[in-house]
Amino acid sequence: MNRAKCIAYSISDGWRGIFHNLMMSLISYSMLVGSLLVVGSLVMLVLNIDSIIEGVGDRNEILIYVSEDATDPELETVASAAARITHVESCVFVSRESALESMKEELSDYPSILEGMEEDNPLRDSFRIRVDDPENAEAVEKALSGIPKVEKVQARADVIESFLKTRSAVNLISIGLMVLLGVISFFIIMNTIRISAYTRREEIGIMRMVGAEKSMIRLSFVTEAVIITLAGSLTAYFLTMLLYNELLAKTLENTGLLSVVPFADNAFAMLAAFVAVSLVIGIAGSLFSINRYLRV
């Protein structure tokens, strides 16, 4: 017995099995493509939400405005109290004069808006507080509100919070869908191989009777399943890339509102994950379903 040729035979037999059982093979393939496409799209959505949250995090500042009658020692007290709050990374004083200068620069194209402001500056002294993590912004905001002479706290915590909530929801939906679609794909592959084994049960019986090893027969069915799942995962990968790049990314870029995460940044990880998932589903599904036909 030539083991290498036996393996080659089992693999080619697995390939033939796909066409023996074409309808079920196509159903399994389509199901896996659909499942991975949904999962892939959700992963890209999560990555984009993460990117937005990080972007918000870059400007993760809280502005506090102090009352007009605050004296210099009181300002120093506010600065040191703010700096002592946990999660505060920095605290920078912005005088009302420098705030006006910044505004002048930002609104240089609209000088009429600023007319008369130099004589009667409406801005107040403020502090720019930088927080270490967007998730801690709300707690810092509360702590800052309690400092004497602080009149107003202007934070982005609400925006961050809504993004974090969205991310959590999408994460939860993604994980739920991944598990659900994974289980469905697994059972469909299992049934495909079970039907394939059933239609070829006489062949399997004869193979067993002439002395073919169980491992060689298993290899044939594992090959059949893995070809289906691998083809499904590669198709899903390219479809996800195509849909993302040509549809979603272009649409978002055209709005000019957001900068989307390039697909290429995560291409390898996604391909590896798709291939790994397809291998696990293919191998486990076929092994579970073939055993009962090997008892001869």
Partner: peptide, 10 residues
Amino acid sequence: AFAMRVFGAR
């Protein structure tokens, strides 16, 4: 031939 093919015969 099937009975020989499963053993990888030439």
